[in-house]
Simulated assay, not measured.
Amino acid sequence: MRSVPKYLVTVLLFALACFLASASDPVPSKTSVLQSTIPLLLFCMDPKVVTANDFFFSGLQIPRNTANRLGSNVTLVNVDKLPGLNTLGISLARIDFAPYELNPPHTHPLGTEIIVVAEGTLYVGFVTSNTDNKLFTKVLNKGDVFVFPIGLIHFQFNVGKTNAVAFAGLSSQNPGVITIANAVFGSNPPINPDVLTRPSKWKIM
Rank of each mutant, 00 (worst) to 15 (best):
F155C: 00
Q156A: 10
E119G: 05
F157M: 14
V147E: 11
S172K: 04
A168M: 07
V124E: 01
N141G: 15
Y123S: 13
L122P: 02
P149I: 03
G151K: 02
N158K: 04
V165G: 08
T131Y: 14
K142N: 12
P149M: 01
K138N: 07
N141V: 13
T137L: 06
D144I: 07
V116I: 15
F167H: 04
T128K: 09
L122R: 02
N130D: 14
V139H: 09
D144Y: 10
G125F: 00
F148N: 03
A168P: 10
V127E: 02
F157D: 07
Q156M: 12
V139I: 15
V116W: 08
N163T: 07
V147W: 00
N158C: 04
L140H: 08
L152N: 04
K134A: 14
G143K: 09
A166E: 04
F136H: 13
V116P: 10
G125L: 00
F126V: 03
V165A: 10
A118L: 09
L152D: 02
N163V: 02
F148H: 04
G169P: 08
L122N: 05
N141W: 13
V147S: 11
V147Q: 09
T128R: 08
G160S: 13
G151C: 06
L152W: 03
N130L: 14
F146T: 03
H154R: 01
A164V: 03
S129C: 13
S129V: 13
F136P: 01
V124D: 01
D132W: 06
I150N: 14
F126T: 01
S129D: 15
L152S: 02
V145F: 10
N130H: 15
G151V: 05
V117W: 01
A166R: 05
T121R: 15
V139M: 11
V117S: 01
V147C: 10
G120E: 08
P149Q: 03
S129A: 15
E119S: 10
K142E: 15
I153M: 10
S129L: 14
